[in-house]
Design a protein around this nucleic acid. Structure first.
Lengths: 125, 125
DNA sequence: CTAAAACCTGACATTGATGTCAGAGGCAAG
DNA sequence: CTTGCCTCTGACATCAATGTCAGGTTTTAG
């Protein structure tokens, strides 16, 4: 498929796809005239990339991990495994923090609701 | 306390504290000579702001929610409550996504480890 | 064949939070 | 009083991901 279709199917802009390639996160075969062509597999790959972005990884970090996805053997494995474990921890910590923040929001909302009700009560008297 | 101390205690740069004030997230009383002064309460507030930033809220969004924290009564409550619920949902979704990403990373790591072991095995033969 | 739509490269713009610098003033200790 | 550190404002720089535009080529549909 060409870049437009990949963009449509992944909800990622054409611009971004080209940027991913520039950053070494994505590869494409080129037609004789130079147009990028992708296979089905790239759809999943782009979604995975998006997911890592959403997890707060930079493209540099993603670029370090993806080779490990492509060829899960090789000498890279050792350092890459370390790297992944590290990012995994960062992610876990981040998740914990978000959960705590959500809890804080819940308390805030409960307080606000309580105030609203006490106001309604005051008004009804 | 002055801005330097607040910065030190919250691990937020002086520059950022001034930025928060500019964005309406933080207020300070000024001394006669124009220097900012803060109370103990601001320490917690800055930490909370950082927390919301980490949760992916923009300063604009934070600015919408904080009034509701300061005066949890008033007419703002109604719209603000809606806003908070909305952000709360966004946050929950985000957390879910991160958890799924972490799971994907775990699978990747397991695969890499398996490969490493099978290689070690091959070498030992 | 022709026009519209999609693609190419390369460049510049944008956004948000933050860094950094310059020039000036404030404040505490020696 | 002076020296050193902190603070002030205002401006410009940065970074990463993405948007946007221009000028040119390719592909597709009629």
């Amino acid at each position: 498929m060409r870049i437009g279709e990949l963009a449509a199917r992944t909800d990622v802009s054409v611009r971004s796809l080209r940027y991913y390639e520039e950053q070494g996160l994505l590869t494409s075969s080129r037609s004789a005239s130079g147009q990028r062509h992708y296979t089905e597999a790239e759809v999943e790959r782009v979604r995975f990339i998006q997911r890592l972005y959403a997890a707060g990884l930079s493209s540099r970090t993603i670029a370090e991990l993806l080779p490990c996805v492509d060829t899960p053997s090789e000498g890279n494995s050792d350092a890459a495994l370390e790297r992944m474990a590290q990012e995994r921890n960062r992610l876990s910590e981040h998740i914990n923090e978000l959960v705590r923040t959500r809890a804080a929001l819940d308390i805030l909302m409960a307080t606000a609701r309580a105030h609203r009700e006490s106001e309604a009560l005051a008004q009804s008297v």
